[in-house]
Design a protein around this nucleic acid. Structure first.
Length: 769
DNA sequence: GGAGAAACTTAGTACTCGAGAC
DNA sequence: GTCTCGAGTACTAAGTTTCTCC
């Protein structure tokens, strides 16, 4: 364990206390600045932050130069990224052995027939099951070695493409096109998305069309001589309709047929679902190779719509122990490589063609290795409790540092700590333009004196981060400084800073401390504080509502959003109408009581006060709505009953039946009109006590509905799941449930209970974050 | 020393399926 | 029994961090 912070005794005018490592980092930057002849401002040039004109020269920053260099390299065609690297050998572990060297992914045109995994080939069961293995009760001395033995059956490949029936075609300028299957498959990917927002996105259309033309060319062009040149002349609707029909037919299958299909699927997948990790049977997470399709990048991703090519066994690297039986590759194919690297947590990997990065097949969330990582993550965040004061004291002090880099680090730390910003690594030009703390640019931060800051930028997944906040006076001053001309839109706010520098600085306080840890720490700390405020009283539903409110506070802190679902507005409207109707029913019941026994009003006038709240127009509108619903209900019933009769070979109901029902509705309508006119209701029950009990029940239902509606509206744009799964220490939820008598399944789904088994079994009522 | 590969976590959306309303 | 809606899960994109190699 490390860390030490120098005594904070220096004045604001002195160079702030820095660790040796930090001083080294600082020097590095200066040297590199001199070498590349870019920003000539040395940090030490800054004497007084508010007055020094040198500070304004930072616009032509180190980072900007770095970026320019990168762009130049790119345009030189210096694409080293295509070449695969050797597996990374970690410290204190023998170099990973491979049976073949990594190689570039070959382009191919045919798909793979899935190997039929013979149950005989399946890994054999051994004694200990993952359920019995309580890793959290054991010591783990070597963190680099992840496993000793690892056996598995490989991966499942997506099914081969089945060409469309001959009557289903792409039409070009009104003419049917006969496409080779490879090109038809790509067209099918687009057609399937025809009614989605993706298909309306011009970038998506352009990328798809370019890749489609390339595949078409590779596969020999159209077979009936139609020359495809313009996207606008393509008509995908016939293919779209065909897919819709297929979907519909699938839906229409009988439950037995559906069950059979499900069983077949499960039987095929069974051997791949589990692996043997150190002789224990554990679940594999994503054992299916991603199917080909069109890349659906989020936000304004320049590559959205590009073709994600089919992955073949030759592209796949398997990782297992040296003595493990190597799974058979699908017929006619070989695995790309077999590796025996016990320092990593993946079972298989392949390189994808969109950003040339790797995709991995990993253990499931409930596996011991994933559990251990989670546990370590939360323990690290808890450890930050002991250092947070020092971190905060230092960044507050360094806000006034004479050294530019220190000031930038101080403000960045403040942002990360207070507003839970992500680190914000550099992004390439061929990715969506999203930012985090270190990559914030001039235009993302607006300053409103005296101390208001408006953040407006796109963060991870192109989710908008918009917040108008109050900051410390000195933070505001520094931001003004960081934005001083010649800096302008497009320039980095923290021109001296990147995540690796920031993290190096943080590691001077605590080993393993990085920007990310602050999010976990602040999320869990907030949850603990919120839960502490909940009184241990009321029903389970009430306690749960408060738990969710606490969860929501954390989700808002972390800016976890979700798009409002399509039917949200309609469903809110429906629920509001329903509450209104229940209120109206309640008023009618109370009016009945008043009519039956006038003395009731004298006894408790407050109880009847709301009777006059409902204005006539409102009441008339409710009457209209209720009657319409009634009519609709009978029309539907009539149609449904007849459908059934037809199926059972019975005579259909006569039209007069429907008329009879409608007549009843007409009578109710008349009665309501009379009520509206006279203000008196038709009494259906003359027992006052029974009426009162009905009012009580209705009040309870109204309350429940109103709470649900509020929860629904509050959660419409906030996603609670992400913080629950990734940021809130699960032991907090376990303790809450134990202490408050809330069943754990109300808070954690089955898969979360499995994922957090270590927390469920290790936290007692007194545990605190 | 830094670029970028590699490995891992975090994230929103799409899809499925079952409970409850009607 | 049917339909609707939402919870739960699967999927995979998009981050962060660590580490290797030139």
């Amino acid at each position: 364990m490390t860390v030490k912070l120098k005594e904070d005794t220096s004045s604001d005018e002195e160079d702030a206390p820095l660790s040796a490592a930090f001083q080294r980092n600082k020097r590095k930057i200066e040297d590199s600045d001199e070498e590349n002849g870019s920003s000539k401002i040395k940090d030490e040039d800054i004497e007084s932050a508010d007055s020094d004109a040198a500070l304004s020269k930072v616009a032509n920053s180190r980072k900007t130069v770095k970026k320019a260099k990168k762009t130049m390299q790119k345009s030189d065609g210096g694409s080293s990224s295509v070449k695969a690297k050797k597996p990374r050998a970690k410290k204190a572990t023998p170099p990973a052995k491979t049976t073949k060297s990594p190689k570039k992914i070959p382009k191919r045109e045919h798909s793979v027939e899935q190997q039929n995994a013979d149950p005989e080939d399946s890994i054999k069961e051994t004694s200990e099951s993952a359920d019995e293995f309580k890793w959290w009760e054991k010591e783990n001395d070597d963190e680099t070695v992840k496993w000793t033995t690892l056996k598995h059956n490989g991966v499942i490949f997506p099914p081969t493409y089945e060409p469309l029936p001959s009557h289903v075609r792409l039409y070009y300028a009104g003419k049917p096109v006969d496409l080779p299957p490879q090109a038809e498959e790509v067209v099918g990917f687009f057609a399937a998305l025809l009614e989605s927002d993706h298909a309306k996105n011009p970038v998506f259309q352009k990328n798809f069309f370019e890749d489609f033309l390339e595949v078409l060319k590779e596969s020999g062009g159209t077979r009936n001589g139609v020359e495809i040149k313009e996207f606008e002349l393509c008509d995908f609707s016939k293919i779209f309709d065909y897919y819709q029909l297929q979907k519909e037919q699938k839906k229409q299958l009988s439950s037995q047929e559906k069950k059979k299909l499900k069983e077949e699927k499960e039987e095929l997948e069974e051997p791949y679902k589990y692996c043997f990790l150190d002789e224990r049977k554990e679940q594999v997470g994503n054992f299916r190779i991603e199917p080909p399709g069109l890349f659906r990048g989020r936000g304004a991703h320049p590559k959205t719509g590009k073709l994600k090519r089919r992955v073949y066994p030759e592209d796949v690297v398997l990782n297992l122990d040296k003595d493990a039986e190597i799974p058979k590759a699908p017929e006619g194919h070989n695995w790309g490589e077999i590796r025996h690297d016990n320092t990593v947590q993946w079972l298989a990997m392949w390189r994808e063609n969109i950003s040339n990065s790797f995709k991995y097949v990993r253990f499931a969330a409930n596996s011991s290795l994933k559990g251990m990582s989670d546990f370590k993550k939360f323990e690290k965040a808890r450890q930050l409790k002991d250092y947070i004061e020092a971190v905060r004291r230092d960044y507050t002090k360094n806000l006034k540092s004479k050294v530019m880099l220190e000031r930038q680090i101080a403000v960045a730390c403040y942002f990360i700590d207070v507003f839970a910003l992500r680190a914000g690594g550099e992004k390439a030009d061929d990715e969506a333009d999203t930012v985090g703390c270190c990559s914030l640019r001039y235009e993302h931060v607006t300053l409103k004196p005296p101390t208001t800051v408006i953040f407006d930028f796109l963060g991870k997944d192109s989710i908008r981060f918009y917040q108008e906040v109050e900051v410390e006076k000195q933070v505001f001053k520094n931001l003004t400084l960081f934005k001083k001309p010649p800096k302008k839109p497009g320039h980095d706010l923290f021109d001296r800073l990147d995540p690796s520098l920031l993290n190096k600085h943080l590691q001077n306080y605590m080993p393993g401390l990085t920007a990310k840890v602050f999010r976990t720490y602040n999320a869990s700390k907030t949850m603990q504080d919120q839960l502490d405020l909940i009184p241990n009283e009321g029903t389970v539903a009430e306690k749960l509502l408060k738990y969710n409110a606490a969860n929501r506070t954390v989700a808002i802190l972390c800016n976890h959003q979700r798009t409002v679902t399509k039917g949200h507005a309609a469903s809110v409207e429906k629920a509001t109408a329903r509450i209104e109707e229940m209120e109206w029913q309640k008023v009618r019941l109370k009016k009945s009581i008043m009519q039956l026994d006038k003395s009731e009003v004298k006894k408790n006038p407050k109880y009847f006060a709301e009777v006059n709240d409902l204005v006539k127009e409102q009441e008339a509108a409710i009457h209209k709505r209720v009657i319409e619903k009634e009519r609709e209900k009978f029309v539907k019933k009539f149609a449904r009953d007849n459908e059934k009769r037809k199926f059972d070979n019975e005579e259909p109901l006569p039209e007069s039946q429907l008329q009879e029902w409608m007549q009843k509705v007409d009578e109710t309508e008349k009665a309501y009109a009379e009520e509206l006119k006279t203000g008196k209701v038709q009494i259906t029950n003359s027992d006052v006590e029974k009426l009162k009990s009905q009012v009580e029940k209705l009040e309870q239902r109204i309350e429940n509905y109103t709470t649900q509606l509020k929860d629904k509206e509050d959660n419409s744009q906030v996603s609670l799941g992400t913080s629950k799964i990734n940021y809130i220490d699960p032991r907090l939820s376990v303790v809450f449930c134990k202490k408050y008598g809330v069943p754990l399944e109300k808070v954690f789904t089955k898969s979360l209970r499995d994922k957090f088994k270590w927390a469920v079994e290790s936290a007692d009522e007194n545990w605190r974050f």
